[in-house]
């Protein structure tokens, strides 16, 4: 047990994976000598060599495409996409090849590829460096999509992702890279699988579903709501595909109210899927229509506007008031 930043917890997870399995190889831009632009792979090329920690040419489709070939050959590639907004050139390889090859070959070929993606905003970055493209991938059958919210999960879930025989898109909340927390590297990974959601704050009045960077915000909102005598249950989704709807459903059956929050835009996002699925599953337990607190349906804005785009504590609490029937920003609002 030691205190680590989320980035250092990921680094330790990669190190463990490299030690544990000789078939694990790391690929990406600037991940070798530099140790990655966020230093998540710091020191790994020095310790494991240029063949297992590869600096690649600047071509995202090729990083994924060659990873497919390596997987055919029996390797377990862990690739880094430098920033969320740079994953699109690799979209075809991920969606048309990585996701489908196991299905296409009727199980003959596995694609144990982990795609690490720093994602999300809140760091005052230039364009293409703050995006949340998770819904594109969660929509694609054959991919597992997960995201961590704290150093312990970062470490454990990354090791689970690498060990998984399915392809995993592993979203890392970049604005939480420097958040510190206790990390137990010996924690038995099998006791809590990466595709399970976790109740991180128990509560009775409202179920608040969050993932990745907004879990911290959601916890803060739950704490703040206590002052008003409102008990919020926060669910850290962790896995976006498959969704652990059972955990969300059992919470909503108790609270009768659902708020979902994510940085990604609202339209056709994870919030829509969760709200629809929960409504289908336990409509008669709902006391109010589910509410979504998300980024707006606009491209990610300039840094000086991102505070208006990103859901924050107050916007979440406003939605909590809405599902509770309390006075809120839309009280008396007309289109």
């Amino acid at each position: 047990m030691s205190e680590r930043t989320l980035a250092a917890a990921l680094n330790a997870g990669l190190r463990r994976a490299l030690e544990h399995d000789p078939k694990v190889v790391l690929m990406g831009e600037d991940i070798g000598r530099l140790g990655g632009v966020f230093r998540v792979t710091d020191g790994l090329q020095r310790d494991f060599g240029t063949e297992r920690v590869m600096d690649t040419p600047l071509a995202e489709s090729a990083i994924l495409g060659t990873a497919v070939g390596l997987a055919y050959r029996g390797y377990r590639p862990v690739v880094e996409i430098q920033f969320d907004g740079f994953i699109y050139p690799a979209f075809d390889q991920i969606v048309a090849q990585v996701a489908k090859l196991h299905y296409r070959t009727q199980g003959a070929v596995t694609m144990p590829i982990t795609v690490r993606v720093p994602y999300g905003g809140g760091i005052g970055a230039v364009e293409h460096h703050s995006e949340s493209p998770e819904a594109y991938f969660a929509h694609t059958a054959g991919l597992r999509v997960v995201t961590c919210s704290n150093p312990q999960d970062a470490h454990t879930m990354l090791r689970q992702a690498i060990a998984c025989d399915d392809p995993v898109i592993f979203f890392e909340p970049k604005r939480r890279y420097w958040v510190k927390g206790e990390v137990d590297e010996t924690l038995d990974a099998s006791t809590f699988p990466m595709d399970r959601a976790r109740v991180v704050v128990p509560g009775d009045d409202v179920t608040l579903v969050a993932y990745g960077p907004l879990v911290t915000t959601a916890r803060d909102a739950a704490l703040a709501a206590q002052d008003d005598g409102i008990s919020i249950e926060v669910v850290d989704l962790r896995s976006l595909a498959p969704l652990d709807l059972e955990t969300v459903e059992s919470s909503v059956r108790r609270t009768g109210r659902l708020v979902v929050t994510h940085e990604a835009s609202q339209h056709a996002g994870l919030g829509a899927e969760i709200a629809a699925s929960i409504t289908e599953r336990c409509f008669h337990h709902l006391e109010a229509a589910p509410a979504r607190v998300t980024g707006f349906d606009v491209p990610y804005p300039p840094a000086k506007l991102e505070e208006h785009f990103l859901p924050d504590l107050d916007r979440i609490l406003d939605a909590v008031d809405r599902v509770l029937g309390r006075r809120n920003s839309l009280t008396g609002w007309k289109a």
Partner: peptide, 27 residues
């Protein structure tokens, strides 16, 4: 079965397989 034949499932997406071949060769 690609592994027993030594030939991947043909790629319908144009050109995608050239990267797979390159990665396999690196392996």
């Amino acid at each position: 079965d690609p592994r027993s034949i030594g030939m991947a499932t043909p790629s319908i997406v144009i050109g995608a397989q050239t990267l797979h071949a390159t990665g396999y060769a690196m392996g």
